[in-house]
Design a protein around this nucleic acid. Structure first.
Lengths: 176, 176
DNA sequence: ATAATATGTTGTCATTGACAACAATCTTCG
DNA sequence: CGAAGATTGTTGTCAATGACAACATATTAT
């Protein structure tokens, strides 16, 4: 497996973290040197989805890059965290909560089990379902993962702006 | 081709559009009947990416569903709109602007050309590149597409709340 | 001119989301 | 009780997407 290709490029160190308006996270935005007279985006600018998409991609990209040392992707992270906070739940419970289709989750859990981070135990009450738990190894890994995730979130604060981030979280909390 | 599988389910009519707090757009959120004591999401709630992702997926899902009659996906839409607003630009210009990799864009343009919506003309100044234009058919299609896209955006306003949407647009505008 | 770059194209892989089919278990209800 | 129906997890498979290598053609830099 190793580092997935998906962890795409986008370095671009940028020192100065002045209080000034944060710069774009990633990609396109125009701004670069030697670029033909920038295009007219007016129409796209009316679409929420357009911005949401770009921001989401940029945020995930940073997440993947930051967590590369543990080779954990966002979906895996959310599953691990949810299992940690809710040990013993079934695959269907976790899947529904995160909106991950059961077939997809089954395969993701295979991978996490292969890494010895989680285990499926027989559920006492319903022999169809498995109850999910972190292993000790998983708990240790999660500790490291959490610290990387925290670093990622800090970086998002830097780029987006602390207040903006809070506003976003507030805005979005109602939809999760 | 026909309607791509991707245009996933998620109907769920909901009459009453009172001024009350808008309900979730899609998926999971808990709330449903007969669901085990809802899970602890506290940790994920600290992550912007988590919300961004869910909201973005929900918004795109609605977009795809709303534009299904024209079988246009978000990326195609953005390409069409950008070509319409900036006729004659090269593939690389459009690709960079939208952050679409050139190989991917090449194939997308094949499809749009097959549908007779756009054409690649020889660029006068640089014979490597193609200058992109809508066809008449494409312009007519885009008219319909735009009206569907407007309907989608209206729906987003309904769900997200007019003021919230403006706030979001404001917040996100700086990052596109 | 020669080398380095840029543009568009095709080939190919990995990841993801979706869906169908299946076995093993519950649940419902006659 | 017992058969019909639903749920849970699993595997197989397809389509869309993003990435990247290799290539031909053309342009720019040295």
């Amino acid at each position: 497996m190793a580092v997935p290709k998906h962890a795409n490029g986008q370095r671009r160190g940028r020192g100065s973290r002045g209080p000034a308006r944060p710069r774009a996270l990633d990609a396109a935005s125009g701004a670069g040197p030697g670029q033909a007279e920038s295009l007219d985006f007016a129409e796209l600018n009316g679409h929420i989805g357009y911005f949401l998409r770009r921001l989401q991609v940029a945020v995930f990209s940073n997440f993947i890059r930051t967590l590369a040392p543990m080779d954990v992707r966002p979906a895996q992270y959310s599953v691990l965290v949810l299992i940690a906070s809710n040990p013993g739940r079934s695959q269907s419970a976790i899947g529904q909560a995160l909106n991950i289709e059961r077939a997809r989750l089954a395969r993701m859990l295979h991978e996490l089990e292969r890494r010895n981070w989680i285990e499926r135990r027989a559920a006492p009450d319903d022999r169809r379902s498995h109850s999910l738990h972190l292993t000790d190894t998983g708990a240790k890994a999660l500790a490291r993962i959490r610290s990387l995730a925290a670093r990622h979130e800090e970086r998002m604060v830097e780029v987006i702006g602390r207040d903006r981030r809070l506003l976003l979280l507030d805005l979005l909390r109602e939809f999760g």
